[in-house]
Nucleic acid binder design. Structure first.
Lengths: 243, 243
DNA sequence: ACGTACGCCGTACAACGTACAGTGTCATGA
DNA sequence: TCATGACACTGTACGTTGTACGGCGTACGT
């Protein structure tokens, strides 16, 4: 059994236990396992992140993975923390701290949307233990700083941050390609008319609005109307807190 | 192979294909499979919804399930649609249509939070094919009606609805017990101090706000400050659309 | 009465996470 | 210098999952 999750999360910290120097030199490390897992998830989805597949990619036997990671669930936490740490920490300090809070929040939202588009598998990881890792904490820290111009107290600032991030998360979820989209598209020629038959004249409101919304989605290629609409709502909602 | 998903979703509709009357009488039905699956998921989580377990609960052999449902993924879609259909359609028509849109939206949000608390497994179902089912469409229809007093056009009404529902979904997700909460609590006595050691004096903002937010959470038992905060933000955000 | 459509079932396979019992290698204390 | 034992790595094996396939018996339509 390797070290505990908390120490694996902080494996790059000078105080982290490094394990004795005895025995053969390790051919792989926790870090390399996590990196390989992220590459795999980026390419083929989280479902492709298999202990066996990981081991094959790293050129070791299946069970060797467990020398560097306790459990698949722990691995997911490590992956999430690394991804969080890779989110650009906002180029602040030098040029433009931009006291305009609306712009700050918009940038924060866009940075997070970008992160979730680069690593869609983050949406599938429910485990909150990554909140203990350095990447996640650093992200939390500089995002709180971005909300500082709002002038809220600590508890409200935290609530505002989760409010914004939850919106981004939901938007990213809607944007990502659905798992069974292909099959649905394939059988739509038959299903569409059949559905129309079932619906008949029921739910006129849903039929009209659904059609309009569907058409707006498949439009000129606007990435998502829901994004701009929702972001404007978020900003206006936060604006109501200002004096 | 049974009927297609679209027909299974609408299995209670008079026009739905019912299958020939030949052969032995069916001992179970698609409906009973879905009901049993929902009972199972409510009791033991979506992970407990196993084809074998389902078959055992219904007193048939494992493979008989596939006579009534194409695939486990399809079953999840059917479950979601039934759950959506069970959401109370808002006691409208008689007494108080309540032209106050804020109250309407609040009721809509609370009804959805209630739904997700009764069936937390809905949060784990990503498949959007349930949007083709009668329960989901009925829910969509009467929720659109609840947003009518906002006076928006069709596309904006749809966007507003997904905005509200996404907020509720994220809140429900935060409220539900985390999968590894037990283990975390168990090892916290060791992990807490070690984390403090790693953090040192870094991330002072995150440490201060995190502590404050954590304390506010574990407070008098307020179900969630994030809920009331977020709901107020949602309402204020929508209010900005009004003339 | 017969044929056949259809519900049900047993077996089997591939893939998964991971427990367990090694095997070999190296820094270290004697 | 040598023996100790910590440690990376590995092969086998178990239990669990979804589901493909083929067979069996029932009961309706002819």
């Amino acid at each position: 059994m390797p070290r505990e999750l908390i120490d694996l999360l902080w494996r790059d910290h000078p105080d982290a236990p490094s394990g004795g120097a005895r025995g053969p030199r390790a051919r792989i490390s926790t870090g390399s396992v996590v990196e390989a897992a992220i590459r795999l998830a980026d390419a083929d989805g989280l479902g492709a992140v298999t202990i066996r597949r990981l081991a094959a990619d790293l050129g070791v036997s299946t069970m060797s993975i467990y020398t560097h990671v306790n459990t698949r669930d722990d691995l997911l936490v490590l992956m999430a923390d690394v991804a969080h740490g890779s989110a650009a920490p906002a180029p602040e300090g030098g040029a433009s701290p931009s006291a305009d809070w609306r712009e700050q929040v918009r940038l924060l939202a866009e940075a997070n949307l970008d992160l979730l588009r680069r690593h869609p598998w983050l949406l599938e990881i429910a485990d909150d233990r990554s909140a203990l890792g350095p990447g996640t904490i650093a992200k939390y820290d500089h995002e709180l700083a971005a909300l500082a111009p709002l002038g809220l107290d600590d508890v409200a600032t935290d609530a505002a941050l989760t409010f914004v991030l939850d919106f981004v998360r939901a938007s990213a979820r809607a944007l990502r390609p659905q798992p069974h989209a292909g099959e649905l598209a394939a059988s739509w020629p038959q299903w569409g008319p059949r559905l129309a038959g079932y619906l008949g004249d029921d739910f006129p409101l849903a039929q009209r609005v659904g059609a309009a919304a569907g058409e707006a989605m498949g439009g000129v290629g606007e990435p998502s109307l829901a994004w701009s609409f929702g972001l404007a709502r978020v900003l206006d909602g936060l604006a109501a807190l200002r004096p």
